[in-house]
Write a protein that binds this DNA or RNA. Structure first.
Lengths: 334, 334
DNA sequence: CTGAAAGCGCTTACAG
DNA sequence: CTGAAAGCGCTTACAG
């Protein structure tokens, strides 16, 4: 492997000079710089970023911790993140947690050892030990799609799940539905909780009774939505509309309805949340709530970059607006 | 930041001893080791992996270069890769290329500078310059879903696109279809070429004429499949079946057919390729060819690990079998 | 079993 | 503008 020493020797200059040439240091004669650059090319020299990191205490590496890159939502955000970070010369180290506490912990440990310059995390286990770990890291962190615990003074970027869900329920209400069921995500899910809270609050605000049998929490899959819809239909027979906390669940519900020949929106109205690509398929055309996924990733990365550049800045959180996308799964209740 | 020196000082031992304690070196008295380990904990010491990498010439980092993490196929493989690599204490550095030559080149350059230990790449631009770059890296590389150029002696892992596509076309043939159209991916796509080749060969093998107007190459989207089907239907009126080179295209075609009230499989049979999750949706139930995505990622990672561990091993390629999944979009032609 | 010393490949004051 | 020297935080022969 050729090092800075080799190119210094070839030219009969010092290593300092070579270093200055490749780092665009002002204190160097243009001709000297030119010679060095040429020698580097001739020798096929590649600077060793590891050595540089050690001395500069910057690795130009940022960690991205996510539960599941397979989730279309998360992968779109990851792409946005990678785009802005790589443009700035940073590398993204990707850690999949599979919603396992152990994997989250080991990723954070690894971030400490590898001297990562910053972190973007979608964390599912923010207990006191984890918080301590994050504090000890002493690097900028932005939470993506999660709220940081109060003692952490770190920013987050997310969509306004609450407001978006209010829109969805308001829409159903504006269509004169009163018996509105709810299909939720697993109860531990943060986003699921927010969407559920919005459902309750909106119903209450309009003075509409919430029927406990009209609420069910499904698994994170089409099958979960399918089962949930089956349960709802049998337990809450007056129901004329359903707000499903995400599109996957909504589509699972639509499958059950199709199988049972319940016409949508004729007999049942459905609203989802996420605006996944499949929701726009000809047979589905789901009315849902859209969020700017890739843009969220981009903004999270940009936020982290400014936090890194202006050291000590806490960074301010970003809450994106949602948009109700009206398609074909809702109809006025008469 | 606390370093190995701090813990040595606290205990009045040498840094060598501390180093030996944390690296499970045999030449250390168990009691000494115990003391060191405790001191490390007390001081909240975290080893600096950057320093270690510099001296050991291993970064425990592998690079994963992919065109688009948003593609459900690639993200599933990425997940498989991350799982096995992180279990082995390796980190995965993720680079999105967006099918841009420039981004591929800069990722490879970065791999050299960061002293990555290995690479898994889905490369779209293997020209001579790129090949040279890869050679200079002098680290294990496995190609994922691509063939390495002949002069590179590197292994690949992929599914047998050719054989899988033969199965699809043979199936249509077994149903007595003779006028079989083909919807392809963009022509530069490697996987697309293989699937097209299989279509042609299988038709020829059975002595069936291929009609040039029955072949169209679509864009990489539902819309692309939609347009392609429209074109095919008007140009090739005897057509009774279509092999679409991937599920997205197939579903786009199904959308057009549904919109035109052409019954599937009554008037038109369709086979896809990929077995994406959406293909199993109630309204779609697409007959298609399945590939073990996550498993492919896992095996690619395992292959890379053995190449790294047994230095100098070239590694042998892995070609996965496909499986024809028969659902509801094909019917016998009478 | 333990320590002193050299060295990994760079950067960065400090002198000149 | 340039060079010699110290140092980033470790690991690893080499002596003892």
């Amino acid at each position: 492997m050729t090092t800075i020493k080799d190119v210094a020797k070839k030219l009969g200059v010092s290593v300092s000079t070579v270093s200055r040439a490749m780092n665009n240091h002002p204190d160097i004669r243009p001709e000297t710089k030119q010679e060095v650059l040429e020698a580097m090319k001739e020798l096929n020299y590649t600077p060793n970023a590891v050595a540089r990191s050690l001395i500069q205490r910057r690795s130009y590496t940022i960690g991205l911790m996510m539960p599941d890159i397979t989730d279309p939502f998360l992968s779109a955000m990851a792409q946005g993140i990678e785009e802005v970070l790589s443009d700035d010369g940073y590398q993204v180290v990707y850690g999949n947690t599979s919603r396992s506490r152990e994997k989250e912990e080991s990723f954070l440990l690894s971030a400490a050892q590898r001297k990562m310059d910053g972190l973007i995390i979608t964390s599912d286990f923010m207990d006191s030990e984890m918080i301590q770990l994050l504090k000890n890291l002493d690097i900028p962190v932005v939470f993506l799609r999660r709220r940081p615990p109060a003692e952490l003074e770190m920013p987050f970027v997310d969509v306004d799940h609450y407001q978006g869900s209010c829109k969805a329920v308001e829409y159903l209400l504006s269509l004169h539905h009163e018996h509105i069921g709810f299909i939720g995500m697993p109860e531990y899910s943060y986003t699921g909780q927010e969407r559920y809270r919005a459902y309750r609050d909106t119903m209450n605000k309009h003075g509409i009774d919430i029927h406990p049998e009209g609420i069910v929490f499904g698994a994170r899959s089409y099958e979960g939505g399918f089962q949930a819809m089956a349960q709802l239909a049998s337990a809450y027979s007056q129901m004329t509309a359903v707000f499903a906390a995400n599109d996957i669940l909504a589509i699972g519900a639509l499958e059950w309805l199709a199988e049972q020949k319940v016409s949508v929106p004729g007999q049942m109205s459905i609203v989802g949340f996420d605006n996944l690509e499949v929701s726009n398929l000809h047979w589905i055309k789901l009315t849902t709530v859209a969020q700017p996924r890739k843009e969220m990733g981009r903004r999270a990365a940009e936020l982290l970059m400014t936090m890194i550049q202006t050291k000590g800045s806490k960074g301010s959180s970003i809450l994106f607006d949602t948009e109700l996308i009206i398609r074909n799964t809702c109809q006025s209740h008469t």
